[in-house]
Design a protein around this nucleic acid. Sequence first.
DNA 1: TGTTAGCACTCCCGCATTGAGAGTGCTAAC
DNA 2: GTTAGCACTCTCAATGCGGGAGTGCTAACA
Lengths: 353, 353
Amino acid sequence: MLSERKRSVLKAIITEYVNTAEPVGSRALARRHNLGVSTATIRNEMADLEEMGFLMQPHVSAGRIPSDYGYRFYVDHLMEHDQLTYSEQDLLNQLVYIKSLEADMVLATASRLLSQLSNYVGLITSPRIHTGRLTAIELIHLSRRLALALFFTDNGQVENRVLVLPPEVESRHIESLAAYFTHRLAGRPMEEITGQLLDELYSELLEDHIQNHDFISRIAQALMNWLKSGGRSRVFTGGAHNILGQPEFQDVEKVRHLFALFEEEALLLQLLQREPGITITIGQENRLPVMQDCTVVSSTYTVNGKSTGTVAVLGPTRMDYAHVISVLEHLTGCLEKAFSSHDDEDRQQDAVF
Amino acid sequence: MLSERKRSVLKAIITEYVNTAEPVGSRALARRHNLGVSTATIRNEMADLEEMGFLMQPHVSAGRIPSDYGYRFYVDHLMEHDQLTYSEQDLLNQLVYIKSLEADMVLATASRLLSQLSNYVGLITSPRIHTGRLTAIELIHLSRRLALALFFTDNGQVENRVLVLPPEVESRHIESLAAYFTHRLAGRPMEEITGQLLDELYSELLEDHIQNHDFISRIAQALMNWLKSGGRSRVFTGGAHNILGQPEFQDVEKVRHLFALFEEEALLLQLLQREPGITITIGQENRLPVMQDCTVVSSTYTVNGKSTGTVAVLGPTRMDYAHVISVLEHLTGCLEKAFSSHDDEDRQQDAVF
DNA sequence: TGTTAGCACTCCCGCATTGAGAGTGCTAAC
DNA sequence: GTTAGCACTCTCAATGCGGGAGTGCTAACA
């Protein structure tokens, strides 16, 4: 266990380093944080802390900088809660009242705000939607050449799609098709409905409805597309350019790899697959080589009590952890409000998810 | 008019500079391009070309580099046609056969390919869709709590949206509402249908349908959302990180501004509003200060003979113009094929636009 | 035993200097 | 009109040289 004084020295060093990005020397520390002891004592404490793995020295006559382990101890034991200013809160609160009901727009804006308020990179994943079970498929004959396909799920989602009919289709065919699809698929969890299952269904159907070959495949296609688009989460990256102002990202080659990562949606999704609540991975704790001196702080948000997405900030390990966490907590709240406000039934239809 | 020899010297310098990114000296030029004259003669020609504004000298004892005007002359008069390799063509051809029918996916992939094949940044705008006139609005009573809104246009688009009904609505109300909306809006070009017009309609309607207050606003809302999402083009930026390999983008501050631009969708859209065919804006020809040493080469693609989008490459003025143009031409063809293949009616429903 | 002042030592960083190299313009000869 | 030669200019990388910041150690002190 660390002595009280060691804790305050470590905390002071991290606070100082986060602000200045320069190695912290004993003199600067004594001057700006009144620790009540001399520089020599601080030096002794620093030497101890270094030996214990909390600090590092870039070279022999430089000040100390925190190690990953030092940051870890800081976020676990030393960090104090940070309060957002009112103007920061207001900025985030706007999200709840965004006019556009499109989820895309909300999340894109949110990721940009996240970056703006943290000066790092904002990352947000959209939640998966297909969490329920399919309850029914209906086909409605709209006009000579148009039909409407409706897919219902047990958690209240309705997907609808207009289909163009081949000339020779009759109403009774359409109805029997809908009944057949419902019969075979109703009750299944969405994840189970795959291309393979649809293919089987397809070949079964072909035996009975030879003349409607084309139409059947269109229904299956529409269903498939919906499943695909809903099963896939998207990632919104906002304000990536902001980290270019940070001193640790002055090396173009390094930045290049990082920005390449931001375009790897699949990789990001994996990276942002997180436990509920606030999660922090510091430096080496990140597996990817590109991120060995980056920290990701993330939080999850929940829509309709079920499907969850992640909001995260990626920045240098020298990060203002307390502030970032406050921003994330507030943003999480805003997103949950934005997506489950009073008119949620409407919203659900209009939103991409 | 430039002498034949001056033209070959200029062309050789540009070719050389595009490859090496280093100022081109007379000796290097004589060695690598057999122009059949001595370095002294080349020096004289270079001095002339500089005086005429085609070349510049970073400092007195450096080689020459092309000016914006030099590049302009090159693309207008000297450039030769470039042929894509088969593997490059294959890469682009994949786009036509992308399984996913989502336009988003096609364009995002295309922008990435564009970057990959050029080593610069790929920019693509999705075409605007709302080019026709509204012909009818239909409301269909699906179940006790659900109605379907259908919006038809004269160029064959159909938008559909499921609406949740307030408890007390009756079928005849729904029908009369649809008739009223159609009566007031049919025949109008899509651009004319704005929030303001809908607001007027809304207040008129309230007088007659006091009890359906809520429902009416939902229909208007759905219509509005559709108009918004369709009237707005999106921009897909791909492979931005690739230009970080180019020597002109080693300055982080410069890169920062450029990357900030890539997140300004509105600005990009404006920038990519282009004449049909290949357009090139070189260096200072671009208005934005960030882009004073960048070139944008763009081409337009057309879907359904009407709505057009832009594909473009943004890179340093020292750009492999011939190659970029070939890539753009080929890509344009692929996109047009991808979006207007045989099953285009289906596609139109499924695609975002 | 813990704390502090003092001091020698180390290392980075910015600055000026220097020499090699590349390229030019000019001149004179062809 | 073309070319060889040469003096000149300028950049760039390498080198060397304090100044400054910060440390660890030692010895004195409470």
